[in-house]
Computed example of a mutant assay.
Amino acid sequence: MSNPINMQLDARTVEILSGITTATLTTLLLKKGLRNVWLRGTRPLRPGQPRLVGRVFTLRFVPAREDLATPESWSSPISTRAAIEDMPAGCIAVVDAMGVTDAGIFGDILCARMAKRDVAALVTDGVVRDVAGVLGTGLPVWCSGAAAPPSVAGLTFVAWQQPIGCGGVAVFPGDVVVVDDDGAVLIPAALLEEILALAPEQERLEAWIMGEVEKGASLPGLYPPNAENKARYLAETAKDRA
């Protein structure tokens, strides 16, 4: 089930997006007409994790079916174990768990293997199990919480590197995801270059506006800036944008 998509992001892309908040990204994508890019239920398992950027590597669960969702299925060629061995270094695993919160999709052993393979992070609208052990692996995780039962108690694993829905968002292999304390935001692959061009300027503008607010400026005409404030902003930040 390997996909020929180049999963490695170049250093420039990682550097730019590592400095852009997911909040800013949602604003930029909204301006491009995309309202549904924030993956619901993806909260950092450990608050304060660094902002991470990576190509999406998808995994998909469907509802549990008793003849398929068994402990024996873990040894199947189509299994989470096999999918993990297909994950390239630097990817972010995005898992469609259908929002199920009473069956943990991965535990400490699977997360430890992902960490060994240099997977950047795990993102899911489901939950994990063995939380203390998962935290101990050092793998950054964004999820909806924890549950003791294994995945087969509520889910059947069916595929990887296929289009999925995670947190109500359509996710395709090769898309880019950015995660921070506000959750996970998807950047469609086709819009990546546009966002890379726009994001630093948006962050610079908002930082300037925050500085003005801290000086006591009122919001009308400042956020968003009117023509006068826009001109002042451009003049004061000309060196930064050169």
Rank of each mutant, 00 (worst) to 15 (best):
M1T: 12
N3S: 12
L17N: 04
I20N: 10
T21C: 10
T26W: 04
T27G: 07
K31G: 15
K31Q: 14
R35M: 14
P50G: 06
P50L: 03
V53L: 06
F57L: 06
T58W: 05
L59N: 12
A64C: 08
L68W: 12
S73K: 11
R81L: 14
A82R: 10
A83K: 00
D86N: 14
P88E: 09
A89F: 09
C91H: 04
I92R: 05
M98S: 06
V100W: 01
D108T: 01
M114G: 05
K116R: 14
A120F: 00
V123W: 03
T124D: 01
D125F: 02
G126F: 04
D130I: 00
D130Q: 13
V131P: 02
A132K: 12
G133H: 02
A146H: 09
P149Y: 08
V158C: 06
Q161W: 04
V169M: 10
A170L: 13
V171K: 05
F172T: 10
V177R: 01
D180V: 09
D180H: 06
A184V: 08
A184I: 04
A190S: 13
E193L: 10
L196H: 05
A197V: 00
A199L: 07
E201P: 00
R204T: 08
L205Q: 13
E214I: 00
K215P: 03
K215I: 02
L219K: 08
P220Y: 01
Y223T: 09
Y223R: 13
P224Y: 02
K230D: 08
E236Q: 15
T237F: 06
